Computed example of a mutant assay.
Amino acid sequence: MKDAILHNPRCSKSRETLKLLQSHGVELPVIEYLQQPLSKAELREVCKLLGVKPLQIVRTKEALFDELGLTQDNGYSDAQWIDVLASHPKLMERPIVVYRGRAAIGRPPENVLSLLA
C-alpha cells in the first residue's frame, strides 16, 4: 500500500491527525475511505503493516456493529472480518496513516509521530 492517510473528514481525530502530519511537513495523499473503500487485499496489507488482526481495526462501539448483529467473539476468521470491513468501511478504525512501509492508527493523533522518526 502506498503512503496515505485513510481519512474521514467528519472525524475530529482524523482531522487532527491530518493537521499534525501537515505541521510536521508531511503531505500525504488523502483517501476518504468511506467514498473510496479499500479492497480486501488493501485491508489485509493495512493489518499487516499495523501488526494487528482485522478485528483489532473494527470499530466495535459503532452502532452499525450492533445493527449487523456482530460480536467480537462470534468465531469469525480473519478473512471474514476482512469481508465485514470491505462491505462496511464505516466500521474501520480511523484514521490510519501508512508512511514509508509502516502504519499507525491516529488514536490519539500523536501515535502517527512514530512513523516520522
Results as ranks from 00 to 15, higher is better:
Thr71Gln: 15
Arg94Thr: 07
Pro9Trp: 05
Gly106Val: 09
Val52Gly: 02
Leu64Glu: 10
Asp3Trp: 06
Leu28Ser: 01
Pro54Tyr: 09
Glu27Met: 10
Arg100Leu: 05
Val97Gln: 00
Pro29Gln: 04
Arg10Tyr: 08
Tyr76Ile: 01
Ala104Thr: 08
Asp83Pro: 08
Gln36Pro: 01
Leu18Ala: 02
Glu16Asn: 13
Arg15Ser: 02
Leu50Gln: 03
Arg15Asn: 01
His88Ala: 11
Gln72Tyr: 14
Glu62Asn: 02
Thr60Ser: 15
Leu28Ile: 00
Cys11Thr: 02
Asn111Arg: 15
Ala41Tyr: 08
Lys48Thr: 11
Pro54Thr: 11
Leu38Phe: 04
Asn111Ser: 13
Asp66Tyr: 14
Arg102Asp: 11
His88Arg: 13
Leu6Trp: 04
Leu50Lys: 00
Leu64Phe: 07
His24Ile: 07
Glu62Arg: 02
Val26Asp: 01
Leu113Ile: 08
Glu45Leu: 07
Pro54Ser: 10
Leu91Asp: 06
Gly106Asp: 10
Ser87Asn: 14
Glu32Leu: 10
Glu110Ser: 15
Ala4Glu: 02
His24Asn: 12
Ser87Glu: 14
Arg15Pro: 01
Pro95Arg: 05
Arg100Tyr: 02
Lys2Glu: 10
Gly25Met: 01
Tyr76Pro: 02
Lys48Ser: 09
Ser39Lys: 11
Glu45Gly: 00
Pro54Glu: 10
Leu50Trp: 00
Leu21Arg: 00
Asp78Val: 14
Leu38Met: 05
Thr60Phe: 13
Thr17His: 03
Ile5Tyr: 01
Ala86Val: 05
Ile31Gly: 05
Glu32Met: 12
Lys61Phe: 06
Gly25Leu: 03
Asn8His: 12
Gly51Val: 03
Gln22Arg: 13
Leu21Trp: 00
Ser114Lys: 12
Leu34Phe: 07
Asp66Lys: 15
Ile5Asp: 04
Ala79Thr: 14
Ser77Asn: 07
Arg44Thr: 12
Arg107Lys: 06
Ile57Asp: 02
Asn111Tyr: 09
Ile31Thr: 12
Leu115Ser: 00
Ile105Gly: 03
Glu32Ser: 13
Ser87Leu: 13
Leu91Val: 09
